[in-house]
Simulated scan of single mutants.
Amino acid sequence: MSIIQLENGKFLIIDTIEMNDKLRKEIDQLTNNGQKIEAVIAAHPFHTLFFPSFYQAYPNASYYGTPRHLRKITNIPWKGDFTDCNIRKKWEPEVKLRIPAVNFKISFFHFKIFKFCVFAGIFVDACEIGILRLKIGAEFINPLPESSNHFISVFVYHPYSKTLHVDDTIMYTEDPGWILRLIGYKRGTLFFHPSMDSDGLHPTAAAPYLFRDWMKNMLNDWKFDNICTAHIGVKIGGAHEAVTTLLEKTEPVFAKLSEENKKKNPDGILPDGMHPNTNVKDDKCV
């Protein structure tokens, strides 16, 4: 869970954790017994367990989630989900939100002769031939299988503190447990969620590279220094450089996944139940 104070003095709660008396007292003191909580953001489709109890404690805040939150937790009166561009933009420029590897582009080709454009053999003052291209990298609306595909989440960036909040898509551990050490993770390791190698990305040849390119754009636009990840770690300082290095080291994995997907799915067709999200253009709302 992360807590961001806005310029208006109110607070955003990003994800929830199990409440205890100590935490409840701290949040009450910070937010005037919840009166200053402007909104609660559910950023990861599968982080659902503690939202009902948090809502019982703070029912007057506005709650926003992923499509899965709205489907699964029906006792919370959600204000909307993050496929809605206006909700993602709601707290800009103070807080910025993006959904990884979901892009929508329209390309226009212009054919001009002198001051005119020619289309179908006819001279007109202006014309555009548009080609619609969907760029799809990962499933956000209905991630399947539910038992393992916990890869995609909403990235939340707070420029003032230079902090990036990421649930599961990127993970960090300062002191890995024995299971993580057993599979090769060392102290201070930053890594992508293991489901990226199996179900996390769409099963197309393009998907791994779309996610990689989305990450590159994010790194170019967001100059964070700290990263807050779910479950096991917060990295203070040096996070931008560390994520950049992680992305570079993962290039062979992207190439391998792309080649495997190309063999299994040469036509790049999305299986039933997966969604091309179409309200994002180069990470910006359309």
Rank of each mutant, 00 (worst) to 15 (best):
V234A: 12
S107D: 09
C127R: 15
N32P: 10
F191V: 02
I136C: 11
H193L: 03
I141H: 10
H193C: 03
A126G: 14
M1E: 00
V156H: 13
I3N: 07
F191P: 10
E128T: 12
L70H: 05
P145S: 11
F254S: 04
A239E: 05
N217F: 12
S198K: 15
A242T: 04
I41W: 01
L180N: 03
F211I: 11
I141T: 02
I131C: 02
K264C: 09
I27W: 05
W78L: 08
H165C: 14
D81G: 04
L70M: 14
F254M: 08
T244L: 05
I14V: 13
D221N: 13
T204R: 12
Y160C: 04
V154I: 08
L144H: 04
F151P: 10
V166L: 01
K135G: 05
T250I: 07
K36Y: 03
R133Y: 10
K112V: 11
I236R: 13
I122V: 03
R187E: 09
E128K: 14
D282V: 15
A255G: 05
H275I: 15
I269L: 14
K135T: 11
T48E: 00
D225P: 02
I141F: 04
F54T: 12
S198Y: 08
G121P: 14
S153I: 01
P208E: 01
G184I: 07
P100H: 12
Y209T: 05
A57Q: 01
I141P: 06
I131T: 07
F192A: 07
L210W: 08
G121W: 09
H202N: 14
H110G: 14
F82I: 02
G233H: 00
